[in-house]
Nucleic acid binder design. Structure first.
Lengths: 195, 195
DNA sequence: CGAATGACAGATATTGAAATCTGTCAGCTG
DNA sequence: CAGCTGACAGATTTCAATATCTGTCATTCG
């Protein structure tokens, strides 16, 4: 039996939707396309997702969650906090840069999706900030960092490094000085964190 | 005699263009509109600006230069460098926020113009960064700051505060925590600058 | 003679009619 | 009868005809 005869699940619909988005781009990907890719009528898709927007939001969340997952390992590590912070920020930058540079069209597609789904992005950022908070908290406990309010400080570190993870700067990630700029900002922030 | 009978200068064309952009927005503002506003034929406008793009670039430069000018006074001051740095960054944030919040449509217009004119924006950023460099250089001389390469450090400070001056974050400048976020980032950076 | 004009060709934008899509739901099917 | 279908109304998008704009230049005007 081909996959077409499998039971129709939300999961299969999400996979098909990602494929349709990859093929047609965010502007032309329709629910009818997704249904066609699955060999079902578009009415069936609406049984699992109330609206097209909800479907796209679910795809967005999946994608963002995959990114968070890649980083949580570093945040949970137990090396010295300064190294962990540097590694975490470098991994975030590297992951974003790899995605933007490796498949620009797909990255553009997800940029459109994230722009549509401010709420999902907000949760993702809250997730990343909480990973950062854990690292900084650990640093405060070992005495490597000084931070009256680790949560607020994590937020500041995240915002100050926006240029190296926010999609609106993707264009500049491939420019010659990008790596040096990243190091300069991180060095300055790490110095600011020390007691 | 009305202004219509004055000699046609680049300056008068630029003023009329700003007015037309303000009235019609960046998408609908045409060279014909500018000529009509001045009571001349559009051919006359082309005597002063080779293309529509050149005209829009000139308007963009004027606008950016006005912003740089507002800040250069602070950079040239002679109070203690840390205060000067904080004041300069606060003034930059305040100016941007005032422009974005005060007349959102006009701000959106200029956002479109700056997106069109990457070169002009590059010069503007170079100008601002050089003002910052002067402040940091001064701090190094008085011993308030430690910076091996003041130019690179200024660049890092500028980039790290992007969230508070880059138009792509304009939406968030009016949110409740914005001021606190700004202070947290600046505090962290200033700590990082101290010897 | 230098500055301004307006007709013009090619490029771009607007418009409205036709095609497609979204979301619903009564009925079909296994 | 649970899950799927496909016809449908209203919203949105596409497309091609039409109108407007950009940039040039031979000509006019003072």
């Amino acid at each position: 039996m081909g996959p077409t005869s499998e039971i129709l699940t939300a999961e299969r619909i999400l996979e098909a939707t990602e494929e349709v988005l990859r093929r047609h781009g965010p502007a032309k990907a329709t629910v009818v396309d997704v249904a066609r890719a699955l060999g079902v009528s578009h009415g069936s898709v609406y049984r699992h997702f109330r609206t097209k927007a909800a479907l796209r939001e679910a795809v967005t969340k999946r994608w963002l969650d995959r990114t968070s997952g890649e980083l949580s390992g570093i945040a949970a590590g137990n090396g010295d906090p300064e190294t962990r912070l540097r590694d975490w920020l470098a991994a975030l930058f590297a992951a974003k840069r790899r995605k933007a540079g490796g498949d620009p069209e797909l990255f553009a597609t997800y940029t459109v999706l994230t722009d549509e789904n401010g709420a999902a992005v907000g949760e993702h950022i809250a997730d990343l900030t909480s990973q950062l908070t854990r690292i900084i908290q650990a640093g405060v406990e070992t005495g490597d960092f000084a931070a009256a309010d680790p949560r607020a400080t994590a937020r500041a570190v995240f915002q100050a490094t926006g240029r190296f993870h926010d999609p609106c700067y993707a264009r500049e990630w491939e420019e010659p000085g990008a790596e040096a700029d990243f190091t300069a900002v991180v060095d300055l922030l790490v110095r600011g964190l020390r007691p």
